[in-house]
């Protein structure tokens, strides 16, 4: 992985070694020159009138210079290691605010856009980034809120014409062509359902969802709900199997939990292929409900493909429940969705 921290460490080490090399090089040449060219004179203690003249032989010069070289090579290793460690430490310290910022940014999602990045005692450069990021987040939060309010408004406004349409079609059902009447009623119901889900999603994402949390017997709820999905699966020559052991009690809003399970099961029917496995189980101290199926190999008709609204709603509803996490994965042609309650 290319990491700026490591690059800084390497740069630091290389620069230190270069400085050391230059230093040793200069010392080495200077010493050789001094030993070879310069002659020395010394006075003899006790004999003020004596003067000794001398110079080093070539082999003596080589010996002294060689020792210097060996010594330099010997301490180059530890110095390099020390430089590496020091460099890494300094680089990590300087980039600590970046890591901190990343951690904080990761924790910000659609449901908590009001959160901001806070860096304490960071350098000027990082403070500038912090400031810009926060103003970006503020703009994002603002437009997200507007969008969410708008979709809630639209969904709200649509309910009156939809009510009228439903009442009128219902009233006229006996007078229009039967197949048309049935199709109209079915499509109207589908439209109402989308509007409901949009409104619910907007409410949940704005954090305005009021949940009535209570202990729910998960296995009993799943077993009770599953019947109709079994029928729907059978109509498509598919099997729906439930693996549920002991009864598990979880804290949830029953309506929201039903909605989540409904969306996940509908998803499995719409986008999946082959058998659907629903399991209610305990894993360590966690309780979970998992829905697995193979992904359809043939492309799903555009009308049935949906907009991803269902899963998004499940995510938003799960996020509103304390202790509940939702996760879904597509691996090797299989789709696994999981609701997990931490105890």
């Amino acid at each position: 992985m290319k990491s700026l921290r490591w690059r800084f460490t390497v740069w630091f080490t290389l620069s230190l070694l270069a400085v050391l090399g230059v230093f040793v090089g200069i010392t080495y040449t200077h010493l050789r020159y001094e030993l070879r060219v310069e002659k020395w004179e010394r006075s003899q203690p006790g004999r003020a009138d004596w003067r000794l003249h001398g110079s080093y032989s070539d082999s003596e010069v080589d010996d002294i210079a060689g020792e210097l070289r060996t010594l330099a090579l010997l301490y180059a290793g530890p110095v390099a290691l020390l430089a590496l460690g020091l460099g890494y430490y300094l680089a990590r310290r300087s980039f600590e605010p970046v890591a901190d910022m990343n951690r904080q940014l990761q924790a910000i999602g659609g449901h908590n856009l009001e959160r901001r990045v806070r860096l304490t005692d960071a350098d000027g450069e990082f403070q500038a980034i912090e400031k810009n990021l926060n103003s970006l987040l503020a703009r994002l939060e603002d437009s997200f809120r507007q969008l969410s309010e708008f979709s809630a408004q639209v969904a709200h406004e649509l309910r009156t014409p939809l009510t009228l349409l439903r009442l009128q079609v219902e009233e006229a059902a006996g007078r229009i062509e039967p197949a048309l009447a049935e199709s109209l009623q079915d499509e109207l119901r589908r439209l109402s359902d989308y509007v409901d889900q949009c409104l619910q999603l907007a409410t949940a994402e704005q954090g305005r969802l009021a949940l009535e949390l209570q202990p729910v017997a998960l296995r009993a709820l799943v077993t009770e709900m599953i019947e109709v999905y079994e029928l729907l699966a059978r109509a498509e020559n598919r099997v729906l199997r439930v693996a549920a052991g002991e009864e598990l009690t979880v804290r949830a809003d029953v309506r929201a939990l039903r909605q989540m399970l409904h969306n996940l099961l509908t998803n499995a029917l719409r986008h999946g292929e082959g058998p659907i496995l629903v399991s209610v189980a305990r894993e360590g101290s966690a309780r979970l409900c998992r829905i697995e199926n193979a992904l359809a190999t043939k492309p799903v008709a555009a009308s049935a493909a949906g907009t991803g609204l269902g899963l998004r709603l499940v995510r938003a509803l799960a996020a509103a429940h304390p202790g509940l996490s939702f996760d879904c994965q597509e691996t090797a042609g299989r789709f696994v969705a999981e609701l997990r309650w931490r105890s």
């Binding site: 059902a173 049935e182 009623q185 079915d186 109207l188 119901r189 359902d193 729907l232 109509a235 039903r258």
Partner: peptide, 18 residues
């Protein structure tokens, strides 16, 4: 209507629920 039945009995919308 079938849609009214679905609503009354299940309180959910199903694709091809009829």
């Amino acid at each position: 209507s079938k849609t009214a039945i679905i609503e009354h009995v299940w309180d959910q919308h199903f694709d091809s629920g009829t």
